[in-house]
Simulated assay, not measured.
Amino acid sequence: MQPRRDATPTEVCASQRQSYDVTVVPGTDAVVFVSFTARPEACQGLEGPSLADLPIVYAVDTAKWGILSVQK
């Protein structure tokens, strides 16, 4: 994802893959759970909300490749 042209430094940092750790856990019935957690050192010292407050878990249907739910 590319940040918008007038993005703040925090928005630019938040859009970079290296700012997150990703974990995938298999579920049942072709569902996997994908967790994105901000790395502790990511975007430190920048203004705005901390990325560490944003763990996000997606439930993904791998048969239809759709997102079933999002938990923050």
Rank of each mutant, 00 (worst) to 15 (best):
Met1Pro: 07
Met1Lys: 11
Met1Ala: 14
Gln2Cys: 04
Gln2Ala: 09
Gln2Tyr: 10
Gln2Trp: 07
Gln2Lys: 06
Gln2His: 10
Pro3Asn: 14
Pro3Arg: 10
Arg4Ser: 08
Asp6Met: 15
Asp6Trp: 08
Ala7Tyr: 05
Ala7Met: 09
Ala7Leu: 05
Thr8His: 05
Pro9His: 10
Pro9Val: 04
Thr10Ala: 09
Glu11His: 06
Glu11Gln: 12
Val12Asp: 09
Val12Ser: 05
Cys13Asn: 09
Ala14His: 00
Ala14Thr: 01
Ala14Asp: 06
Ser15Phe: 05
Gln16Leu: 11
Arg17Gln: 11
Arg17Ser: 10
Arg17Glu: 08
Arg17Asn: 15
Arg17Cys: 11
Gln18Gly: 10
Gln18Cys: 03
Ser19Tyr: 03
Tyr20Phe: 15
Asp21Phe: 06
Asp21Met: 10
Asp21Thr: 13
Val22Cys: 10
Val22Asp: 08
Val22Gly: 11
Val22Ala: 14
Thr23Lys: 14
Thr23Gln: 15
Thr23His: 10
Val24Gly: 07
Val25Lys: 15
Val25Gly: 09
Pro26Gln: 15
Gly27Pro: 06
Gly27Trp: 15
Gly27Val: 13
Thr28Trp: 13
Thr28Asn: 13
Asp29Val: 08
Ala30Glu: 15
Val31Leu: 08
Val31Glu: 07
Val31Arg: 09
Val32Ile: 15
Val32Glu: 14
Val32Met: 13
Val32Phe: 09
Val32Lys: 12
Val32Thr: 12
Phe33Thr: 11
Phe33Ser: 13
Phe33Met: 13
Phe33Gln: 13
Phe33Cys: 12
Val34His: 08
Val34Ser: 06
Val34Ile: 15
Val34Thr: 09
Ser35Thr: 13
Phe36Lys: 08
Thr37Gln: 09
Ala38Lys: 02
Arg39Ala: 00
Arg39Glu: 00
Pro40Cys: 03
Pro40Asp: 03
Pro40Leu: 01
Glu41Asp: 12
Glu41Met: 00
Ala42Glu: 05
Cys43Ala: 12
Cys43Val: 11
Gln44Asn: 13
Gly45Lys: 02
Gly45Leu: 04
Gly45Glu: 04
Gly45Phe: 04
Glu47Pro: 11
Glu47Asn: 10
Glu47Cys: 05
Gly48Pro: 03
Gly48Tyr: 07
Gly48Trp: 06
Ser50His: 07
Ser50Gly: 12
Leu51His: 03
Leu51Val: 02
Ala52Cys: 05
Asp53Asn: 14
Asp53Tyr: 02
Asp53Ala: 14
Leu54Phe: 02
Leu54Thr: 12
Leu54Asn: 07
Pro55Cys: 05
Pro55Ala: 04
Ile56Met: 07
Val57Asn: 00
Tyr58Gly: 06
Tyr58His: 13
Tyr58Asn: 06
Tyr58Thr: 02
Ala59Phe: 10
Ala59Ile: 14
Val60Trp: 04
Val60Glu: 05
Asp61Tyr: 03
Asp61Ile: 04
Thr62Gln: 09
Thr62Ile: 09
Ala63Lys: 14
Ala63Glu: 12
Lys64Ile: 00
Trp65Arg: 15
Trp65Ser: 06
Trp65Cys: 03
Gly66Phe: 03
Leu68Ser: 05
Leu68Gly: 05
Leu68Gln: 14
Leu68Cys: 02
Ser69Met: 00
Ser69Ala: 11
Gln71Glu: 06
Gln71Gly: 10
Gln71Ile: 01
Gln71Tyr: 01
Gln71Trp: 00
